[in-house]
Amino acid sequence: MQVNEYKPLIVAFCCNWCSYAGADLAGNNRLSYPDNVKIIRVPCSCRVNPMFVLRAFQRGADGVILCGCHPGDCHYTSGNYYTRRRMALLFSMLDYLGIERERTRVEWCSAAEGAKFAQTMNEFTEAVAALGENKRLEDLRCKE
């Protein structure tokens, strides 16, 4: 295979009701974003266990982004409020351990914000690409 420029691996967790629909809308409008963004559908952003984020890093993801409904718009009324606290603390902890803070992000994206979704993914990928590979959290044994 030819040698490509470095492409970071981005895992995006998207809630079913807002952000996943927002990603679909980005598709409907043909708004492109890097193909290294891979979306995992969850019912609500509050379904995302910090362990999933850590697991993604462990398995070699270079950046993890969580997308959910805007605060106040959660389909389940309060799910994203819990997400907001959990991720604020988790990301602060990762930063404390010396993991580059640019690798983690939470973005609220509604079903109508296809453009915002695509733009967010472009920006995030760029930011992660600037950092290079995730060496600090990756478990190299998983790369075989």
Binding site: P71, G72, S78, Y81, Y82, R84, R85, R86, M87, A88, L89, F91, S92, D95, R101, T104, R105, V106
Partner: peptide, 17 residues
């Protein structure tokens, strides 16, 4: 406990830093 609680005006994860 704070992790099973919230307020609508909590700070955003992006604001942490």
């Amino acid at each position: 406990a704070p992790l099973v609680d919230y307020t609508t005006g909590d700070l955003e994860p992006g604001q942490v830093f």
